[in-house]
């Protein structure tokens, strides 16, 4: 379980997160929803130590992640696929994956076989530079690179951004399947509330750095006020 308590993060005068509290259950998908600028990316970046918390606490299975270095948080089993995916364009698919496996000290060949089974297209493109991949393939590569290290927590920052609806649906199905099979704890940041709520167990809605709702995905999805004002979901 990832536990966030009274977390505040500021950039100078900008309060990106204010007193954010919620728990993300182990082995479940928690969607983090909200408009552009709500603080979703900042939340994930603070969890992995890329931004500094002004106050509050973040813990993984009871161990505080604050004051830990990003690389040590990664080694503790937190995989973070950043906004924009962060694949290294100059590297081949294989090099990107190898990089992901090194710190975790897992068997690269075994991990590779597993990821190619999950994302067959990566196997076909293994020797290509990441620069030549499509948006969907890059997202798959970024996820595979995080997964090959066998994390217990996976942070995904807008995986559907720029993807066609069909590809997004596939991506969401894969995330759901992963979470189930590997009892992975997933924090799924999305502006695309509709597709995220389909696969999420729980949902947290952020607005200007504040939590306006933290409940089951079902409850959030059926709350008219949330749908209308914060999620941009208008009923037909």
């Amino acid at each position: 379980m990832i536990s966030i308590a009274n977390l505040s993060v500021s950039f100078g005068a900008v309060h990106a997160l204010t007193n954010v509290s919620f728990d993300a259950a182990k082995g479940k998908i928690t969607a983090i929803l909200g408009a552009n600028g709500a603080g979703k990316t900042t939340l994930l970046r603070t969890i992995t130590g890329l931004e500094e918390a002004a106050s509050g606490e973040i813990s993984l299975e009871g161990t505080s992640l604050l004051n830990m270095r990003t690389e040590d948080i990664a080694r503790a089993g937190v995989g973070h696929v950043p906004e924009g995916r962060g694949v290294i364009a100059e590297f081949t698919v294989l090099e990107n994956l190898r990089l992901g496996s090194l710190a975790a000290k897992v068997n690269f060949q075994d991990g590779l076989a597993e990821q190619f089974e999950l994302f067959p297209v990566l196997g076909e493109r293994r020797s290509q530079h990441a620069a030549t991949l499509s948006g969907g393939e890059r997202q798959m590569l970024a996820m595979a690179r995080a997964l090959i290290a066998k994390p217990s927590v996976l942070l995904l920052d807008e995986p559907s951004l720029g993807l066609a609806p069909l590809v997004t649906a596939e991506m969401m199905a894969t995330i759901s399947q992963l979470c189930e099979k590997q009892s992975l704890t997933v924090l799924l940041v999305e502006q695309n509330a509709k597709s995220a709520l389909k696969v999420a167990h729980d949902a947290v809605v952020l607005h200007l750095g504040n939590v306006v709702a933290a409940a089951s995905a079902q409850e959030v999805a059926s709350d008219e006020r949330l749908r209308q004002y914060y999620l941009g979901l208008v009923d037909q």
Partner: peptide, 11 residues
Amino acid sequence: LAPEVARLLGV
């Protein structure tokens, strides 16, 4: 090439 990404991968 990408220090932040490298850190996120435990480098």
